[in-house]
Simulated scan of single mutants.
Amino acid sequence: MSLKIRMSGWKNRIAGWFIDREFFMRANGQVRFLKISAQLQRRAAATFASVIGVWLLVTFGMAINQVTVSAQRLALIEQEAKVESAEERVASYRGSIDEVTQDLERRQEMLESLGDQYLGDLPEAEAQAPSASADSREEEKAVKTISAIVPEAAGLARIEVRQIRFAEKMTKVAQARTLQAETAIRQFGLNPEVLARQARNAQGGLFEPFFGKGKKEARDPRFLNLAAALGRMDAMERALAAIPTAMPAASMMMSSGFGYRADPFTGAAAMHAGLDFKGPVGTPILAAAKGKVVLAGFNGGYGNSVEIRHANGLVTRYAHLSGVHVRRGQMVERGVQIGRMGSTGRSTGSHLHFEVRLNGQAINPRKFLEANPDVLKVQTVAEYRADSAAKE
């Protein structure tokens, strides 16, 4: 009963919207009346509602179609990225064993080159990775299928399986080393993702397929994963190696810390953007990390100064020197003498003012110079591997 009452109430309310309406218009001294009946209003409203309804249905249908097309496109991409089935590989071997042999030879050369460049000792790298995966076991089944259908290709199929297994191991090792480098970078109070973005912002070159002309290698997800893992590992280890952790002076006596202090000349509150190390005039000043000299000479209140640009936006500054031993544009190694301690510029006595800046922003160098020995060990290994890769 209550439902009928409610329905009746709604009908009466809607009926109240459409009533006969009269309008009058005055023009040239004459008055004209225009009457719009309730029935005409209802028909116009029904027509408008129908148009809106059709438009909504068409829009909804187009949206569903777009989603369906996108889903089909994603499914197609996933299908293309799937590892080839045994039947597909049998067809490849049947088509041209010579071509498959050339593809495998190119792949082997590339794997050996990547191993030497990024992972160094291959037996050591293999020892750090698991022996097999589900994909590898599937590959073993594929070898049996190929050997039974195309006996002359059995040897090549076994070589291909070993290559795939080795690629999987290399990927695992690269991921482990990346995690180790990222952990060490965080110990210094830096964000690995920020440093990784800095590395990606300075890349370029012509496009060359990762594994030569063979199409199946280029889309095999295991080799794409390997390329991505090695690239990130290399970026993280280079970023770790560039962090300035070596003491910049033979003197260990710190005379002023990082942050707000009373200015030594005026006594007013001031920001000190680095660390001060006190020592005799002529004390050797050393590069805190490997990099390129971007400034070597007088620099206003800093006096005689040296600035070294490292990787990923890091810059170190060495100020108030009595002498400069390097020139602009020169590459220097960690621990190499770049100048002598002094008191040039805005200084009250012989000392080194040492700064570290990331993308132009001063950061506290103390956390770099007081790093945990285990972290420094990881950094040393990363620096050695990064230098070895650069020489390849």
Results as ranks from 00 to 15, higher is better:
residue 1 M to C: 07
residue 4 K to V: 00
residue 9 G to W: 13
residue 12 N to G: 01
residue 12 N to A: 10
residue 12 N to E: 10
residue 14 I to Q: 08
residue 14 I to V: 11
residue 14 I to C: 07
residue 17 W to N: 10
residue 22 E to F: 05
residue 24 F to G: 11
residue 26 R to F: 13
residue 30 Q to W: 11
residue 32 R to L: 00
residue 32 R to K: 04
residue 33 F to N: 11
residue 35 K to M: 04
residue 35 K to A: 12
residue 52 I to T: 15
residue 53 G to P: 09
residue 55 W to R: 14
residue 57 L to H: 07
residue 59 T to Q: 02
residue 60 F to G: 04
residue 60 F to V: 11
residue 65 N to Y: 10
residue 70 S to F: 02
residue 73 R to G: 10
residue 74 L to D: 10
residue 76 L to D: 10
residue 80 E to K: 11
residue 83 V to M: 09
residue 87 E to Q: 07
residue 87 E to T: 03
residue 94 R to K: 13
residue 97 I to W: 05
residue 98 D to M: 01
residue 100 V to E: 13
residue 101 T to G: 09
residue 106 R to G: 06
residue 108 Q to P: 11
residue 110 M to P: 10
residue 111 L to K: 08
residue 113 S to W: 13
residue 116 D to S: 12
residue 117 Q to C: 13
residue 120 G to W: 15
residue 122 L to Q: 08
residue 122 L to Y: 09
residue 123 P to H: 14
residue 126 E to M: 08
residue 127 A to N: 12
residue 129 A to Y: 06
residue 131 S to C: 09
residue 132 A to R: 00
residue 139 E to M: 10
residue 143 V to Q: 12
residue 143 V to C: 11
residue 144 K to R: 05
residue 144 K to Y: 02
residue 149 I to E: 15
residue 150 V to Q: 10
residue 151 P to H: 11
residue 153 A to C: 08
residue 153 A to D: 05
residue 157 A to T: 01
residue 160 E to Q: 06
residue 166 F to V: 02
residue 167 A to M: 05
residue 169 K to T: 01
residue 178 T to S: 15
residue 179 L to G: 00
residue 180 Q to T: 13
residue 182 E to Y: 00
residue 182 E to D: 08
residue 188 F to P: 14
residue 195 L to W: 14
residue 197 R to C: 07
residue 201 N to V: 07
residue 204 G to T: 04
residue 204 G to K: 15
residue 205 G to K: 15
residue 206 L to G: 13
residue 206 L to W: 05
residue 209 P to A: 05
residue 210 F to T: 05
residue 211 F to S: 07
residue 214 G to Y: 02
residue 215 K to A: 06
residue 216 K to V: 04
residue 220 D to A: 08
residue 220 D to Y: 02
residue 229 A to C: 05
residue 229 A to G: 01
residue 233 M to I: 05
residue 234 D to F: 12
residue 235 A to W: 01
residue 235 A to T: 00
residue 237 E to Y: 02
residue 240 L to W: 02
residue 247 M to T: 01
residue 248 P to A: 03
residue 248 P to N: 06
residue 251 S to L: 01
residue 255 S to W: 03
residue 256 S to C: 06
residue 258 F to T: 11
residue 259 G to K: 01
residue 260 Y to E: 15
residue 263 D to G: 06
residue 266 T to Q: 10
residue 269 A to I: 03
residue 269 A to N: 01
residue 276 D to R: 03
residue 284 P to Y: 04
residue 284 P to S: 03
residue 286 L to A: 03
residue 287 A to T: 02
residue 291 G to I: 02
residue 294 V to S: 14
residue 295 L to F: 09
residue 296 A to S: 03
residue 300 G to Q: 09
residue 302 Y to D: 02
residue 311 A to E: 11
residue 313 G to C: 11
residue 316 T to C: 00
residue 316 T to Q: 01
residue 320 H to D: 12
residue 320 H to L: 08
residue 321 L to H: 07
residue 322 S to Y: 02
residue 325 H to M: 03
residue 327 R to S: 08
residue 328 R to Y: 02
residue 329 G to P: 00
residue 331 M to I: 09
residue 332 V to M: 05
residue 341 M to K: 05
residue 341 M to A: 06
residue 344 T to Y: 02
residue 345 G to H: 07
residue 346 R to E: 11
residue 348 T to H: 08
residue 350 S to V: 03
residue 360 G to H: 10
residue 361 Q to F: 08
residue 363 I to S: 15
residue 369 L to R: 08
residue 371 A to L: 08
residue 371 A to I: 09
residue 372 N to V: 01
residue 377 K to P: 03
residue 381 V to N: 03
residue 384 Y to M: 03
residue 384 Y to S: 00
